[in-house]
Design a protein around this nucleic acid. Structure first.
Lengths: 224, 224
DNA sequence: ACAAATTTTTAGACTAATCTAAAATTATAG
DNA sequence: CTATAATTTTAGATTAGTCTAAAAATTTGT
């Protein structure tokens, strides 16, 4: 049973919403908003996905992915993130330019292609935004990153990811000369508005609003 | 006006049939057979392509691509062939394994992607089967290749392409240890059945039936 | 040249994916 | 606890792309 481009997009949306909502079931409206679609359209599609046993669905309650559905979601996410690595590392796209292209490439159907692409890219574990890449069995690294807005003063962190993937946000980080893997020293925290003064890579100083800091993910810097 | 995946496949089919039929108009049946579709379905689609001014169409007569349609066809062919180069050169696919994957990749919509891919591959002029790759303006090298079955005895040629792209045929050439760019010396021609004894790269001898030779394209070897 | 064969088009129907409008169900607020 | 609001589903319609069957037009063979 082959999944269509459209079905794959619904499955991916449900996966992302499950991640966001944690325990709660994903509602028709959640999906409709996420995909900019009418709730009636979503009801039709979830009936079809339910018939195919890719989601479990209880009328008026919501949906959740079955094991089979989750495996498909992870496979699409794997393909999306591998293609993003290719676009940035090999074709020299900027990290804020790759999302829409990867959104198309993720639907190319060839197991062999993805295996070879993975090897060609030296089996990367993270995409250009720091998101973990599932392996061919759907397993991915669990990263204990925290938001920079909850970080402590006088401590050094490593910039490991973002929780906002919008072009504008990514471009802004680029103007700060902040890239994945850079060290971030917190020099001071403004009690009033939560803004931060930081030092990037022990070199240059920058100011971050709480709003920006909240979407920057970091993990503590371990000195060996 | 965006062309759909389906429309692109019809345009490509019409382009290929125009090449094959030279002057003659492309008939509904030609397209139906080429795409394994019912003639009635083809009639519907050519009406739509005609409304979009991508083909000119006279009822009961046949179709031909307009300049606009031809530009789209060449763009798809460019993308297909560049992706084939990528798959063979970078991902190490065999030349007989790439067609179906490239058939999917050719519909990815991003000008910037193709420009960067072209650069990444060092602006190749030919794909892994020796077919010329159109540049971004649709121009491509004209190759004066001839079929090996029309070649002369006691002459040296360069293997430059194939006129049969079937997996089985390509695999067979591989078993002969014959690759693009190899030299072919014609040692003898059998008058009765047109079969050939050749020497590949001045190294090993092989026997070719007329049927096989007819699908091997070569150009004369020029010694500087 | 005209009857038979072939090709092409038309007509009508189906599925996937979408929509709007209305009905049904569930949640909420006094 | 019930009336109002919000959400979800149902019903009916639309478009793209496909089909089959039948009608129309063209080509062919003697």
């Amino acid at each position: 049973m082959k999944t269509s481009f459209t079905e794959e997009n619904y499955i991916k949306a449900i996966y992302k919403l499950e991640e966001k909502l944690k325990e709660k079931a994903v509602s028709t409206n959640d999906i409709a908003i996420h995909l900019s679609m009418q709730p009636a359209t979503v009801t039709d599609m979830i009936k079809r996905l339910s018939d195919k046993k890719l989601i479990s669905y209880k009328k008026y309650y919501g949906v959740s992915l079955t094991a089979k559905g989750k495996a498909i979601a992870l496979d699409i996410i794997r393909k999306h993130r591998l293609w993003e690595v290719f676009l940035v590392k090999k074709l020299k796209f900027k990290w804020d330019e790759v999302h829409d292209i990867a959104e198309q490439l993720e639907h190319i159907d060839s197991k062999e292609l993805i295996l070879k692409l993975d090897d060609f890219l030296d089996n990367p574990k993270f995409d250009p935004h720091g998101d973990a890449i599932p392996d061919k069995d759907g397993k991915m690294r669990v990263v204990n990153s925290i938001s920079l807005s909850t970080a402590n003063k006088k401590q050094t962190y490593i910039f490991s990811g973002v929780s906002n993937h919008e072009t504008k946000f990514l471009k802004y980080l680029t103007t700060l000369n902040l890239s994945l893997g850079n060290t971030i020293d917190i020099e001071s925290i403004n009690d009033y508005d939560g803004s931060l003064k930081i030092k990037i890579n022990h070199k240059h100083h920058e100011f971050l609003s709480e709003q920006v800091a909240s979407h920057i993910l970091v993990h503590p810097h371990h000195v060996k």
